[in-house]
């Protein structure tokens, strides 16, 4: 069914890298050479055979921190994306199909939320909410669901006025058939590529919050938090902060490549045939 040789090279690279990050996150305790908080050496030791990526600002093994960091980063980003996506898509679809005041109220509310930059709104609410993972996921998920809402509503509205949907309505089909058999299959490919983008955005947003000291709280650290921990080394020429930052970029790019590929595969209207 899926011939590996037919996957374009960039997508393959994306798939492999994404796969590696996910494996590292899942099997973190088995892979990591040291514990997450374990102090194993001097502060900011350079890369060596014992510590492949060197040590961090407190003398912890940076590679192990990175592997555990992958876990936290992916965990929060996945949950926040899942929340934003299910919330946004359900509300967006229902607004498109039901219309009327339900649609109007939801859409105006979303417009309002989107008129404030996400980071600013995030900072405002995080200034009063308790700092813990649940808050973080909820804030990220809800703020980001506005984007998903816009897209899924727009897509569903477009499909809802197509002649084939009208034909189904004329046939007498119920809302169930119309939403799940007529609209959803045709909305899938824009939504899938949006899923990739939203995930990347969640990773970047989380990293930014943690970098500003408002995301994951120590002693735990995601990659953004690790940048913050090690940033003072930069001026002394110690690149420890650049490693987690590069990991974030690598994850974002590889997910982008995978999303592109999925989009290309799912937009074919010939059922996968030439």
């Amino acid at each position: 069914m899926l011939d590996i040789r037919r996957i374009p090279l960039p997508s393959l690279i994306g798939l492999v890298l994404t796969g590696l990050f996910v494996l590292a996150a899942i099997f973190a305790p088995l892979i990591a050479p040291h514990g997450n908080g374990e102090i194993v050496g001097d502060v900011w030791e350079p890369m060596s055979s014992t510590h492949w990526l060197g040590t961090d600002n407190l003398g912890r093994d940076l590679l192990s921190r990175m592997i555990y960091g992958a876990r936290i980063t992916l965990f929060i980003a996945v949950l926040a994306t899942a929340l934003s996506f299910s919330l946004g898509a359900i509300l967006g679809f229902s607004a498109a199909v039901f219309g009327g005041w339900y649609d109007t109220i939801l859409s105006r509310l979303v417009d309002l939320l989107m008129s404030i930059p996400t980071l600013i709104m995030g900072l405002v609410v995080l200034s009063v909410l308790p700092s813990n993972l649940v808050t973080l996921i909820l804030v990220m998920g809800i703020l980001d669901s506005t984007r998903v809402y816009r897209l899924s509503r727009a897509v569903a509205v477009d499909i809802n006025v197509m002649d084939y949907v009208e034909a189904a309505k004329l046939r007498g089909e119920g809302s169930g058939w119309i939403i799940f058999r007529e609209i959803l299959p045709n909305a899938l490919s824009p939504l899938v590529s949006e899923l990739g983008l939203r995930f990347i955005y969640a990773v970047l947003f989380l990293s930014t919050l943690s970098f500003l000291g408002l995301g994951v709280q120590p002693p735990d650290a995601d990659w953004g938090g690790m940048v913050k921990e090690n940033k003072d080394g930069i001026v002394f020429g110690i690149p420890a902060a650049l490693i987690p930052a590069a990991a974030i970029a690598a994850l974002a790019i590889s997910v982008n490549l995978v999303a592109d590929w999925v989009l290309n595969r799912t937009t074919s209207l010939k059922g996968g045939r030439g």
Binding site: M162, D163, Y164, A167, A168, R181, E182, P185, N186, L269, G271
Partner: peptide
Amino acid sequence: VAMNPRQT
């Protein structure tokens, strides 16, 4: 556009 492109 009168036929669902995802149906045979």
